[in-house]
Structure formats: C-alpha cells, structure tokens
Computed example of a mutant assay.
Amino acid sequence: MADGKSTRSGESLLFLKDEQLRKGIEAMFFAYRGFTADPDRILDKHGYGRAHHRAVHFINRAQGTTVNALLGVLGVTKQSLNRVLRTLIADELVESRVGQRDKRERHLFLTPKGKALEAELSEAQRARMRVAFSTAGPEAVAGFRDVLEAMMDADQRTYFDTLKEKTL
C-alpha cells in the first residue's frame, strides 16, 4: 500500500464511498465492544463502570496528577469526576493529597490496591491488543495508530502527545 491507493480488498483509499465509511464505523463499534468487554467484566465484579476505569488508568499514567488536569484529560464535568473519585477514594484505590505548593490543589495517586486493579484491567486490554497487533502486522499497526491519531480533536491530541512522550 505504499502508493496509498488501495487496501487489502482493493478498495480505493482516495475516494472512500459512504458504504466503505459505514463499514469502518461499524468495525470501530464492534472493536470497541470487544476492547471493553474484558475490563467491563472485571469492573462489574467490583461494582465499577468505565468512568472508574478511565480515572484509574490516567491516574496511573500520571501519578500525582491534579483533579483539574484529570478533568481536562477525561473531558467530563467536575460533578461526574467527583462522584467517581469519591468512590475510588472510599474504596481505598485512590489517595488524594493536598498540594505542597498550592493547598487548594488535590493530587491523585493510586494506592497498592488501585495499582493492582489497574494492572488487571490493563493486562486484559494489552492481551487483546497483543493478539490483534500480532495478527495484523507492523504496517497495519502503524496505519491503525495513524488513523486513530488523525481522528483525535486537537486538545485530545495534545494530551495524547504528552502521555506518549512519557513512554519513550
């Protein structure tokens, strides 16, 4: 596909038809359903939902992040995040500490119990990604990442790039 004109099935990439786009949209829906199925089962055992998973994931990626920074990454309301954080703190998965420089800030950290849950959730998703990436091959993986990054809004891309830099 070096010429950028065809896919494995020979469909043109330069002139995508609505039917091709619809198939892509449906593939995203079903892939997302599969991607979230394993973590959903784990979360359900604990009485948590996807909002809890996202909070735990991003707190783990940036231990000590502030509530305001997490709000920006997740793109949710303060009320919604506070509801999730109250549960995670009460269940001793997350610890909230007062900022040393600014006492109004709250810094969030996963507890050992929170880290264990995050590891279980992430491993379920990594296992699925590992199989998919191995099956598709390196060129497809690179193309997949390019597509995902191209679909991100500019503000989401900024957060993503910041997280990506932390893993290099």
Rank of each mutant, 00 (worst) to 15 (best):
R126S: 05
M151W: 06
R106K: 14
E123H: 09
H57N: 02
R157P: 04
A127P: 01
G75W: 03
M151D: 01
G137W: 09
Q63W: 03
V67D: 02
V98I: 14
E123M: 13
Q20C: 00
R97C: 02
N60F: 06
I59T: 05
D146C: 04
L21C: 11
T135D: 05
L148D: 00
K45Q: 09
R104K: 14
Y48K: 04
R130P: 02
I42D: 03
A142R: 10
R54L: 11
K113N: 08
S80P: 00
E118D: 13
R106Q: 09
P138M: 10
V131C: 01
N60I: 00
A150I: 02
L110P: 01
G64Q: 06
D102Q: 09
F35C: 01
K113T: 10
G34L: 06
E118G: 07
E123P: 02
V84W: 08
R101E: 15
D155I: 02
Y48F: 15
R61N: 05
G24H: 08
K115L: 05
A140W: 05
T65D: 04
A119Q: 14
A119N: 11
D18E: 14
I25A: 11
R157H: 10
T87Q: 13
R50D: 00
L71G: 03
T77L: 08
G99Y: 02
V56Q: 02
L43C: 06
L148F: 12
G75M: 03
R126I: 13
A127Y: 05
F144Y: 14
E92N: 14
M151R: 09
M28I: 05
L148I: 04
N68S: 09
E19P: 03
L148E: 00
S134Q: 04
V76W: 11
R130W: 14
F144A: 12
M129I: 10
E26V: 13
R126A: 12
L108K: 12
A140K: 08
Q79R: 14
Y32P: 00
M28L: 14
D44H: 13
H53L: 13
R22G: 01
R126E: 05
Q156M: 09
V84H: 12
P112M: 10
D40E: 08
G47P: 12
R83F: 12
F35Y: 15
V84I: 15
N60K: 09
A150M: 08
R126Y: 14
A154L: 04
A116D: 07
L70G: 04
L85N: 03
Q20I: 04
E26G: 00
N68I: 04
L74M: 12
K113A: 14
Q79P: 00
D91G: 03
E95L: 15
M28S: 07
A127D: 13
R86P: 00
Y32R: 10
F29C: 06
A132W: 09
K45S: 07
L21P: 06
R126K: 07
H46K: 15
S122E: 14
D102P: 01
K17P: 01
V94W: 07
H52W: 03
A90L: 04
I25Y: 08
